[in-house]
């Protein structure tokens, strides 16, 4: 990887192509969860790699290449979200009401079954989408990208403790929204 990186820094298109191929899937998925729109995610992934392409010369090896790629990606995505300041029109309780029947489903008693229900996964995805950007970032980096607290800390430039706190708060919020479903109580959207 180091040799590949050096070659890419010297302008070798093949080496850059290898870097794109090995990271593109992860960056796209991160963008998809952050931006919540496949077309925007695709464009953002391209922009992120173009940014990486033009700043490869400045890469100083102070961090690993994947960490740096993630850092460029998260900064780009958070900037894009900040710039857009999109007014979310979707209300979290709307899609949830559609799955109210889950609480009456006897299979819902078994957590393993609940986890594997596509509808439940969809609800959780919707709930994650509603998290504030900073919380969603750590949740996606940890649960989707499989990064450790320390790796996320390096990407975001914060301490591992801060990452732990953000994950804890994000999950507390998710639990407060999702509990009505797990417990079969009243579904009110959690907000």
């Amino acid at each position: 990887m180091e040799r590949e990186l050096e070659r890419a820094k010297n302008g070798d298109p093949e080496a850059f192509s290898d870097i794109v191929r090995s990271h593109q899937h992860r960056v796209y998925n991160l963008a998809l969860k952050m931006l919540r729109d496949p077309d925007e995610a695709k464009d953002a992934t391209q922009d992120i790699f173009i940014k990486i392409h033009s700043s490869l010369k400045n890469f100083r090896h102070s961090s690993r290449l994947p960490t740096w790629v993630y850092r460029v990606a998260t900064n780009h995505l958070l900037d894009q979200l900040r710039r857009a300041k999109r007014e979310r029109t979707r209300r979290i309780n709307q899609p949830w009401k559609e799955v109210a029947h889950i609480r009456n489903d006897p299979r819902a008693e078994d957590p393993a079954v609940v986890v594997n229900q596509e509808e439940v996964r969809q609800i959780v995805r919707e709930a994650v989408d509603e998290l504030p950007d900073l919380y969603r970032t750590v949740i996606v980096l940890h649960y989707q990208q499989g990064l450790s607290y320390q790796e996320i800390a390096e990407i975001l430039g914060v301490s591992a403790r801060t990452v732990g706190t953000r994950i804890h708060r994000a999950k507390a919020r998710l639990r407060s929204w999702l509990d009505p479903i797990w417990r079969g109580g009243k579904i009110d959207g959690g907000k």
């Binding site: 593109q24 899937h25 992860r26 796209y28 998925n29 998809l32 969860k33 496949p38 695709k42 992934t45 957590p111 609940v114 986890v115 594997n116 439940v120 996964r121 969809q122 959780v124 995805r125 994650v128 949740i139 996606v140 649960y143 989707q144 999950k171 998710l174 639990r175 999702l178 797990w182």
Partner: peptide, 18 residues
């Protein structure tokens, strides 16, 4: 929390890139 962890890991699986 463990349950939520499992749901999150399951729900946030990677999708194939376009």
């Amino acid at each position: 929390m463990r349950f939520l962890d499992n749901v999150l890991f399951s729900a946030l699986s990677m999708e194939s890139s376009p």
